Amino acid sequence: MPKGYHHLTYDQRCQIYILKARGDTSSSIANILKVHHSTISRELKRNKGQRGYRHQQAQEKAFLRKNSQPNKKMTPQIVTRIEEKIKLQWSPIQISGWLKRHGKEHVSHETIYNHIWKDKRQGGQLYRELRHRGKKYNKQRKGASGRGNMPGRIDIKQRPCIVEKKTRLGDWELDTVIGAGHKGVIVSMVERTSKLTKLAKVSHKTAEEVSQALIEQLKPIKDFVHTLTADNGKEFAYHQMVSFELEADFYFATPYHSWERGLNEHTNGLVRQYFPKTQSFLDTTSKDIERVETLLNNRPRKALNFETPLEVFTRLSTNMLCSGAQ
């Protein structure tokens, strides 16, 4: 077991929230996350709120604590030296390497980037000297989300064979539809057997907003949610939280194999009939989304022997409830 304190990521805090909610002890959580038990104990003590431990609140408290502490290495002399090099269009990596090579106080390039963006927030112009002046540096961490490299990712190959047969109710495909200019996002959910579609608008294509939309839309019918299958976009990074809240298994398609979620791709095409690629979603209202969802769910489908998705979903869900099967 690793010794000493370990800085936790947001994904790990999501796991702690889930495991704590199901009754796991601090020691068992530490074993699962492969960190020292003191890390979990300290996390639960320092970052809980009045309503107990919640992952989002814990992340915010940890962030504020970290960023409220001044970096001792960033002395006035070092700051002056760094800013001189920035104005010569040196990159933070070049500055960090130069300081180390010449025996100066070593400052990581991440710290230099943080200094630049803090200066920008305060109205400074240092960021204009960067090669990618408007684009914030994104540090790549070990184990970070990426296509095919989602933390806790379960591949579609492990999905039960019954999902392919489309003989039961409760297997959903997930995706997002992006507004023109990346202004607004529609989260789309479609049930494989009945073709029932659920739509929700979110402001940004973030894991937090997308996961909340999935939970809000599907939790009222979670008795009819067995599996969820998505692509490998980072907006599905909080899949473990969604899986926990809906009590369903979450799977990821093979990267760039869109045909593995063919129904979702087809449904997105139907959505585009009402929201073309040239349209921004900034002025799209919840009523607009509900109208399109209603139209799609009440349209007869040849694949359903010309029943509507709503008719099929209602019939199958009623049969399940009457038979006591789920």
Results as ranks from 00 to 15, higher is better:
R133L: 07
I154E: 13
G134S: 06
E293D: 05
E290D: 13
E60P: 00
G152W: 06
H7I: 13
K157W: 00
G184F: 08
I93W: 08
W90I: 04
K66V: 02
G23A: 06
G123D: 10
F236R: 08
L218T: 06
Y10D: 08
Q69H: 10
L44R: 05
I40V: 15
L196Q: 11
E245S: 07
S317N: 05
R46S: 12
D175E: 06
R51E: 06
I154D: 10
I156G: 11
S108I: 06
M189W: 03
Q279I: 00
V185P: 01
E216Q: 13
H182N: 15
N305C: 08
Q94D: 10
R51A: 07
H37S: 12
R46G: 01
P309Y: 03
L19A: 02
R291E: 11
Q158A: 10
E247I: 07
K104H: 10
K48T: 14
F281N: 00
K87F: 02
S27C: 05
L263N: 02
K34R: 15
K195N: 10
L64A: 07
A230E: 11
L130N: 10
H106R: 10
T39L: 04
C14G: 05
G103A: 01
E247Q: 15
N138F: 03
V271S: 03
T197F: 00
L126K: 11
R51G: 02
T278M: 07
N264W: 02
F281R: 00
N305A: 14
T254I: 09
K61G: 00
G269Y: 12
P76C: 10
N149H: 14
R13Q: 06
P70L: 07
I156R: 08
T25C: 05
P2R: 15
A325W: 06
S96A: 15
L8G: 03
I186Q: 02
R301N: 03
R101F: 06
M241S: 03
P2N: 08
I186Y: 04
T25K: 09
T294K: 14
R299P: 04
N67Q: 12
V210P: 02
T39I: 01
Q15C: 14
E247T: 12
R121L: 12
E60R: 13
P276L: 08
K45I: 04
R315G: 00
D249N: 15
N298M: 05
N268T: 08
V35W: 04
D283V: 05
Q240E: 14
D231Q: 12
C14F: 12
I289M: 05
T9L: 09
Q279W: 09
T227F: 05
N138C: 09
C322E: 13
L321W: 10
